[in-house]
Design a protein around this nucleic acid. Structure first.
Lengths: 120, 120
DNA sequence: CGCATACTCAAGCGCATGCTTAACCAAGTG
DNA sequence: CACTTGGTTAAGCATGCGCTTGAGTATGCG
């Protein structure tokens, strides 16, 4: 719950690249080799390897080498932790907005009394 | 569904910074001013403004200036689109793993028949 | 064996990011 | 009015990121 923060850094950063997301989408349909992941991407194999490394460092992907090919597979648990962070924040504010809506509906006409609370 | 991709770039990139996530958590409890968002962050106001700019470009945050203070508030819709992308990928692979589990339970002993499909 | 395949590693390059300081402006406050 | 507070903008700098090339290693195949 605390050092997960730095984990989230890596996860969201990994997710912020369209090429890496494409790899993940591919991986969500089943395991794949490194060169297979990079095939639709128009870049050198070395670059693909670096992307895979980012994904693996983030925990989104795990891989193992069998013979001379490295097989990657998605790790849903890490994906879930990112999803969890988002849904927490989103849930929080949506509940807040709901309550605000009710409040405004009840006492229509009054301005927001104190949205931020401690305003120094 | 298509040009959302570049939007997701910005959203996930915005989420990849711990300071920005802290701002979002703050914002999920209600609107706040720029200097208020930056108070716990140990950096100059100018830097905070730049972070807010990133959040706003991503669509995660909207703001309006009233008097001399800019008030920021969270936009749950954008948060939801990021959550949606993740849950899609995660759902896909978890269903796949479930099916694989059933398959392995039924015909125990057989190897995976063809996980990637088109292996060229 | 020789040759292709599938990476792996290191160095380097250009550009973006994250921050700083400094100057500036506008809005409240005494 | 002077002064402070809150924010904006621009310039500059250090670091990191994404990619390349080039060389090397290990595996599979005929």
């Amino acid at each position: 719950m605390l050092n997960q923060v730095t984990d989230l850094d890596r996860v969201f950063h990994a997710l912020s690249d369209p090429g890496r997301r494409l790899m993940l989408e591919r991986l969500s349909e089943g395991p794949a080799s490194v060169s297979e992941l990079g095939r639709p991407l128009a870049m050198s194999l070395a670059a693909v390897v670096q992307h895979v490394q980012v994904l693996e460092d983030s925990g989104l992907v795990r891989s193992q080498k069998l013979g001379r090919t490295r097989t990657c597979r998605l790790n849903p648990a890490t994906l879930r932790s990112a999803e969890h962070w988002i849904s927490e924040s989103r849930g929080l504010i949506e509940r807040r907005l709901d309550r605000l809506g009710e409040y405004l509906a009840e006492s229509a006409g009054s301005p927001d009394p104190g949205p931020a609370g401690t305003a120094s």
